[in-house]
């Protein structure tokens, strides 16, 4: 019997699943932000009139943002301050209460917009303003370009 390919396949499978299952917190949080940015971008395109108002897109984007905003702060354990091209500022760990408050406000703003679900382009424009203010406010203190 030729074990080699079987073994190789098993190793590949193990390797792949381990990166999916146990991704580093730095990667998880960057992935979340990226997905949040894309969802936000879909709404901004409607606000700017580049895309027509589409209730399904708005709802899906807000649900994505809700998911991200509720979970984001869970991915900053001690020891994950740097690495994997993380742009997290050390202030997240120095002032964890302030960071949590910024994240909570983000989550609360997204939740209130989702509950009311903007019904037209004007509504989406207002929502983009409300939610968007959180992005720069948090990045000003808790994120650094490297």
């Amino acid at each position: 019997m030729n074990f080699k390919p079987v073994l190789a396949a098993a190793l590949v499978a193990a390797f792949c699943s381990s990166t999916v299952m146990a991704a580093e917190p730095q990667e998880v949080r960057q992935q979340e932000m990226k997905a949040g940015g894309e969802a936000f971008g879909a709404m901004a395109a409607i606000a700017k009139g580049q895309k027509p108002y589409d209730a399904a897109v708005v709802k899906a984007s807000l649900e994505k943002l809700a998911e991200v905003s509720k979970d984001f702060h869970n991915h900053f354990p001690k020891g994950s301050e740097t690495g994997y091209e993380s742009e997290a500022s050390i202030k997240i760990w120095e002032d964890s209460a302030g960071f949590k408050a910024a994240n909570d406000k983000f989550a609360a703003d997204v939740a209130s917009v989702l509950a009311a679900l903007p019904a037209d382009q004007a509504g989406v424009t207002a929502a983009v303003g409300t939610i968007g203010a959180n992005c720069g406010a948090c990045h000003q203190t808790y994120r650094v370009k490297r």
């Binding site: 940015g37 968007g132 992005c135 720069g136 990045h139 000003q140 650094v144």
Partner: peptide, 19 residues
């Protein structure tokens, strides 16, 4: 004007006040 990059990343750090 808006603080957002073309791929909807947002401005941060000391550039926020400037923006």
């Amino acid at each position: 004007e808006t603080g957002f990059t073309p791929d909807y990343d947002s401005v941060g750090g000391s550039m926020v006040d400037v923006q």
